[in-house]
């Protein structure tokens, strides 16, 4: 199944150089499991960062040359819409849960889905082709290790969760063999940029680290919780009652 992986303009936090975001590298890993020749798609300027995607398993990379300040969405939507109209249309579009470099709100996949009229699924940790042709089975990450297995009709957009398998290791030789095509942004599709509206009162400034709240334990029940030398059966009962009272687990029929 033909797969496109959207790549954003991530930066190394230490050096500030362009690099491939880890989530997108994981997305490439998932794509490579489905598709023999997954291709990357990036709209922006510079290819130093995204070309690493070739080293992580992409067969080719399409770059839409755009100034870094432009909203990439219309160009991406235009490119994908054109590709979907042609032969060998992409069936699956994978992206990280949240791209880097722009507003970093994670809205691009959703806006893309809206523009192209495609269904979207979030937080995939595993994907495989469905039994019926043209379907995809996606395992979505949920709390406490649960997974939601969704079968979806293709084409679709799927975002990848950080719990997905680690990316394929980077190989320079693969990157050297990969092919990069540059494109001019031809068609632009899509909604007006909503981000612009929020910019009016927005103030961008250097980040100030703010501590998170401390996670500390509390003894939930107020009574004396120290039991010295109870019978093992009594101890077991105390433990299970504590677990059930605090909603950790429910055992038995209740």
């Amino acid at each position: 199944m033909k797969t496109i992986v959207l790549l954003s303009d991530a930066r190394n936090p230490v050096s500030g150089r362009q690099q491939l975001s880890r989530l997108e590298a994981q997305a490439i890993g998932l794509a490579a499991g489905l598709c023999e020749k997954p291709r990357g798609l990036h709209a922006g300027s510079g290819e130093d960062g995204v070309s690493a995607g070739l080293g992580h398993g992409l067969a080719g990379l399409d770059i839409i040359d755009l100034p870094a300040t432009d909203d990439p969405l219309p160009a991406l939507a235009g490119f994908i819409a054109k590709a979907m109209g042609g032969a060998g249309a992409p069936e699956l579009i994978l992206c990280g849960r949240r791209g880097e470099g722009g507003e970093e709100t994670g809205l691009v996949p959703y806006r893309l889905a809206e523009t192209l009229g495609l269904p979207i699924l979030a937080d995939a940790v595993a994907i495989r082709a469905g039994e019926i042709a043209g379907t995809l089975v996606v395992d979505q990450a949920m709390a406490k290790g649960a997974r939601r297995r969704v079968t979806i009709k293709l084409p679709a957009i799927v975002t990848v969760h950080s719990l997905a398998p680690p990316p394929m290791p980077f190989a320079f030789g693969r990157m050297r063999r990969g092919e990069i095509r540059h494109h001019e942004p031809l068609e632009r599709l899509g909604l007006p940029d909503t981000a612009a509206r929020s910019d009016a009162s927005a103030e961008e400034r250097p980040h100030r680290a703010r501590p998170k709240l401390m996670r500390q334990s509390g003894t939930a029940s107020g009574g004396p919780n120290l039991h010295v030398g109870p019978e093992p059966d009594e101890a077991a009962r105390l433990i299970l009652d504590y677990l059930e009272a605090n909603g950790i687990r429910r055992y038995g029929s209740s």
Binding site: N12, F170, A171, F172, G173, R174
Partner: peptide
């Protein structure tokens, strides 16, 4: 390393750091 990227797991991080920030 160059063709397969098959370095031992713990050696991946220093190599990735080299690519990212030369250190």
């Amino acid at each position: 390393t160059l063709e397969l990227g098959a370095v031992p797991l713990k050696a991946e991080e220093p190599l990735a750091n080299f690519r990212g920030c030369d250190e």
